[in-house]
């Protein structure tokens, strides 16, 4: 049997991801996480001196804190299994990637283990975020200087 024929057989037998079910679960889990964050933002706006815009920073930090607890107690991997992208895409998923790598690599010590590996999973997001932000901002700045667009 050649590779192409085998790939067809494999495609036929291997289970397909239940797309509709996965999408609905991702929507509900992701939406719920954002909704919880909205309540946390409300808390910061009500009890502290934050506006709708500035509340975003402490909200994000709080969400990551919650994510740390859920990851540490072994709950986040269950959220990720059920919610798929609904667990991975929100900032709590970023927190989960950082925290899970940190606690995993503690066995190699705090410097070589935790310190070196903490961004093992989340690092690529930062790298691509920074690089694309640089390109986008550069292009836009040049375009503004040329008078093509305005700020």
């Amino acid at each position: 049997m050649d590779k192409e024929k085998y790939a067809k057989l494999e495609q036929k037998i291997s289970p397909k991801p239940p797309l509709l079910k996965n999408v609905i679960k991702a929507f509900l889990v992701g939406g719920t996480i954002c909704l919880i964050a909205q309540f946390i933002a409300l808390f910061y706006m009500t009890f502290f001196n934050f506006t709708e815009r500035t509340a975003s920073n402490p909200t994000v930090a709080t969400m990551i804190f919650i994510s740390m607890l859920l990851t540490g107690f072994g709950v986040y991997k269950k959220i990720g299994q059920v919610g798929g992208a609904g667990g991975a895409v929100p900032i709590t998923g970023f927190g989960n990637a950082v925290v899970s790598a940190a606690i995993e690599h503690k066995s190699e010590g705090f410097v070589l283990g935790v310190g070196s590996n903490i961004f093992k999973l989340a690092g690529s997001v930062i790298v691509f975020g920074v690089f694309s932000a640089f390109l986008v901002a550069l292009v836009k700045t040049i375009l503004v200087k040329m008078g093509v667009v305005s700020w």
Binding site: Y76, K77, K78, Q81, A88, N96, I103
Partner: peptide
């Protein structure tokens, strides 16, 4: 798992296979 895939507590979704 930590060597071949992800840290144990990472919430990656596993498929039926």
């Amino acid at each position: 798992e930590r060597q071949f895939r992800y840290p144990i507590e990472y919430g990656a979704q596993k498929g039926a296979a």
